[in-house]
Design a protein around this nucleic acid. Structure first.
Lengths: 225, 225, 225, 225
DNA sequence: AATGAATGAGGATTCATTCAT
DNA sequence: AATGAATGAATCCTCATTCAT
């Protein structure tokens, strides 16, 4: 913190931070909080630690965030945002359905490897049964709902005749698999290949979709795994 | 904690009552700690909270457990033990392979519904990545390894020709699905049927097994779901 | 605060609008501070609270007031001023002495009911005995001295032959009763009629005056209540 | 604090504090809190200050008191108790009614001079409009009710035919006068003689009692000041 | 005429743990 | 076999105030 401060003073004022750069401070705080929360979880993320890692005094953190809870919520939100935008780019390309599903799964897996903060943090918050007013937890649950809607949209696009009930069930299953594989990867480290496992999961989901279809419209489909 | 326990057993006790009291106190502490840790996670489980919920003074907790970490480890161990014993009973019964797999999945799901503490707590610990190799976390990872060995054993029994690499991969996938579905159930409450979802997962795994077999020994298998 | 105020007046202002804004901001701050200080006392009046209630940033408060202490002093001064001016109007009217005393007491009581902030705040400050001679407290004590002088003046007018020592004593007693009744009203709410109680007090004081007179000049007076 | 602690260790263990003397620690904390709160009020009484004045670490204060509020409440309660017991001793003695009233007033005044903490503190709390759940304020209001009941009892004993409404009114007036004179004494220091002023107040109340009686039972009484 | 941003000191309270008894 | 009391470090957060713009 100290050196940070000194650096700021000694550095010649060539580019005077436009509008007294609070944007940068806010970002520094979020960066620090994201790192620490990613390593140590919600409770392990002390304001003092964020302060010293960000170079700003603890009291300054409260200029930008009402309290620790909202700080973590902001971390989750930003992390989710950058995950989403990383995902959005490679949306459609050729190949048959199976290939496309597998590609999507791989993309999800890869982006999770890059910015997993919101997921790890969010899962921890979700598992701890904090009072429901907790901003950070609520934020994660909102985000989770967004992700689920996307997944369900993709499932509907993939199999338009799939009944809504199946869409819900398979949506849950897709996300459950992603969560579970993410956890496996977090626990076992890089010994397990998250991308390969995700493709396995995609396969399983794909098989489940066709199976559900065959149960609903028995004449139109055959087992296709 | 371990030596404490042993000491209590080996030292001859003239008065039965005393020993019973000690054991009862220990149990009360564990019960309280299990409840709280299940609700609030490792950090949220303060010694003071365990003290007031158990009715015993904080210092008494340290008579039974070396420190908080070993208390939580004991909670996990006990909870896992009761989960395992609940699982052990209905091990084998007739029906074809598919049925058997589905039955196992249902049993696992049901026991998780009954005693979910160790899994929730363990997952939190696993996600938290606390720097020092905490006893409680280690204990959970050990237990997880036991569970994985069981799963892999079942997979080998199911498909003896499955290569070891596939066994590992599918073992991971089985557990990941269980974790993910457990989380989904924790988050969404009872709106999702954990048992039905587990059977869906069992199906998916079974399909994956046959698929791996067909990839490895292409001539011997056909799709069999 | 004082110089700030003067500076504002002496410096010629080209634009009328600007000056009006400044004065309005100052008033907004004082209003907010008066409300909060009336409710929560000196320590309970944080600059942050005044800032959010007034809608102006905390740093702007320091543009108008040197520090918190002078802000509170200004609150007391303004509140006292408006109390005094409310009191000044109905100063003299007919009736015998008893009536006049009672009317005065009623007037005081009514104005206290209308603007009790400065008295409540002042009493809190007076009781608090903060070590450094805080401006706000001093301001209140000055004001209290002014009020006492008025009371003593009225007593002298009422009974010119009353010795100075008695004037002092009765002046103290008048104010003590007012303070006490104000407190009773603050505590018990409207269950007690402050005006009626004030008239009771006026009676008591009047009786005490005649009593003091009879002790000093025994031959000239008789009981006259 | 430090020396305190050392002293405790170096002092030879001749009299080992019976039952690990928490009673003494509690008293030390209360003493410290009473001194500081008497000087600086509720907000001015920081736990850190109580800690260093009592010689016990801040965290130990929380062994005895749930929070600062309950600590102050305990201070008020104890101070009131010792005031009451100081007051109880000289209950009845000869002389005519006027003398007796004056003696009582003098006793009250003298005891207030000795242990005024509960009154100063309580008045401050009563004036600040803290949330009603505040323990300390509530405690003071309870105490005030006890004192009022006593006063009303004394009034009834003094003039059994006094109607209840007058008893209430005069009870309020007695206490208001005491509060007001106490404040006058606190503000002006020893320049005003609290005891003499209290006797003046007693006289005024006595006159008011006879006046109320004469208004209610016009034939039985005459003005008696 | 103002204000966004920053800051160090201090606020109350909880923490896991120890120790004498 | 247990516990009342104590403790120092850490917790989150608020405080009044400053300063560059």
């Amino acid at each position: 913190m100290a050196d940070q401060h000194i650096e700021q003073r000694t550095r010649p004022r060539t580019e005077r931070r436009r509008r007294a750069d609070g944007e940068q401070s806010r970002r520094r705080i979020l960066d620090a909080a994201a790192q620490i929360a990613g390593e140590r979880g919600y409770d392990g993320t002390s304001i003092a630690a964020v302060s010293s890692r960000s170079g700003l005094p603890a009291s300054s953190i409260y200029w930008y965030f009402a309290n620790k809870d909202e700080l973590i919520a902001a971390v989750i939100e930003r992390s989710f945002g950058s995950w989403l935008s990383a995902l959005d780019v490679p949306d459609d390309h050729g190949g048959d359905t199976d290939d496309r599903v597998r590609a999507m799964a791989g993309a999800v897996a890869r982006t999770l490897l890059d910015s997993p903060d919101f997921l790890r943090l969010g899962l921890m918050l979700a598992l701890e049964r904090r009072p429901s007013e907790a901003t950070a937890r609520t934020k994660f649950l909102e985000i989770r709902e967004i992700a689920r809607n996307r997944v369900e949209g993709a499932l509907r696009a993939l199999a338009p005749s799939l009944p809504e009930e199946s869409v819900r069930r398979l949506g849950t299953y897709v996300i459950a698999g992603a969560d579970g594989l993410f956890i496996a990867h977090e626990i076992d480290g890089d010994t397990q290949d998250l991308v390969a496992m995700s493709e396995l999961h995609a396969h399983a989901v794909f098989a489940a979709v066709t199976r559900e279809l065959s149960l609903t419209h028995p004449q139109q489909h055959r087992s296709s795994s």
